[in-house]
Design a protein around this nucleic acid. Structure first.
Length: 329
DNA sequence: TAATTATGACGAC
DNA sequence: TCGTCCTAATTAC
């Protein structure tokens, strides 16, 4: 589920367990063999997320030139972590999967497709696709055999990260990284300054493009994907088809602040929680049921939680856009 | 077992 | 506006 929040969590996981370590880099699948050979044996020296992009910095030693690994998970990429993986209050489990389906522990029971905060389950043998001959011992072995199409494996003495299905995975020089970053809109988790907010407001308020498209444009603002877009527009009471320049300035500012708010929650919980002030009961429901987690996302044809009007589904720019025609008039 | 789906983004018309 | 790329889980048959 690679919207901005997951990538920040992934960056933090690398900062915690890989930065400062020497890393064996390989491409079990073979499709990144050349890139892997350029990084193999270097130390990871930094880990940064900007929007949906992950940047991992490598160097031979303190004074050596830097190389970066840029990864974009696209619509179904994911990182799997295993071994000695730090579990803090916000990154459940020793061993987990982050990205497409969020962070998912091998030792973790998962709430549907989302991250779990609690390590309470048995190992998910189905995910590991263990054959019946395989023993418990092979489950414990380190490093584990790569499962499926692993584009890149990053391996330290004690931790391993497997990347599969990325839309982008490449080795870059520092100036090339700078060029990529220069094309990205602000990420409230990277820059929460008034200047960043102003930049967002100015760009939106000058474009004729519909706000529903602008929020998905990574050069306008970083990290928002299809789920957060729908939910942010609903929370703002904003018709997705409103041209950016017609959205009142205070509404645009509110959008930026709400994105920042939801992103913080997302990084903290590992979930795209978009409904505030839930009761204990509703919160549990939101975590367990797909239909109860969002205001409008994936709720086509269901009654709006606020006004009862049926939620509309439109395909815009090849993506599904959900909204309430009454609350977002 | 096959078809469908997904929380992206890019390039060709 | 399309087609394309990348992978795995879910759903349909």
């Amino acid at each position: 589920m690679p919207e901005g929040h997951s990538v920040h969590r992934i960056a933090r996981q690398f900062a915690l367990n890989f930065v400062g370590h020497r890393v064996a880099v390989s491409s079990p699948q073979g499709r990144f063999a050349h890139g892997a050979s350029r990084l193999d044996g270097l130390h990871m020296t930094d880990s940064q997320a900007i929007g949906k992009q992950l940047f991992l910095e490598f160097a031979a030693d303190e004074d050596a030139p830097r190389l970066w690994l840029r990864v974009h998970l696209g619509i179904y990429g994911a990182w799997d972590f295993a071994g000695d993986i730090t579990a803090d209050a916000t990154t459940a489990s020793a061993g987990g999967r982050m990205g497409q389906t969020g962070m998912r522990g091998v030792d973790t029971v998962v709430g549907e497709h989302e991250d779990s905060l609690h390590s309470i389950g048995a190992p998910r043998r189905t995910r590991l696709r263990m054959s019946e001959q395989e023993t418990e011992q092979s489950l414990e072995a380190f490093p584990p055999e790569p499962i499926g199409q692993v584009r890149v494996r990053l391996l330290t003495d004690t931790a391993v990260a497997d990347l599969r299905g990325p839309t982008a995975c490449e080795v870059l020089e520092p100036d090339e990284v700078a060029a990529v970053i220069a094309r990205l809109g602000p990420d409230p988790l990277v820059d929460d300054s008034k200047a960043a907010e102003d930049r967002f407001v100015e760009v939106i308020r000058r474009k004729p493009t519909r706000i529903g498209l602008l929020l998905m444009d990574q050069s306008v603002v970083s990290g928002i994907g299809n789920v957060y877009r729908a939910e942010l527009l609903y929370r703002a009471g904003l018709n997705p088809h409103t041209p950016g320049r017609d959205v009142p300035e205070d509404v645009v500012r509110a959008l930026w602040r709400d994105w920042s708010h939801l992103l913080h929650i997302g990084v903290q919980t590992g979930q795209m929680l978009t409904m505030d002030d839930l009761s204990e009961e509703d919160y549990a429901k939101a975590l367990s049921s797909r239909d109860d987690r969002h205001w409008v996302y994936r709720r086509a044809g269901l009654p709006c939680r606020t006004c009862g009007t049926n939620i509309v589904l439109e395909v815009v720019a090849a993506r599904k856009l959900y909204w309430c025609p009454r609350c977002q008039a």
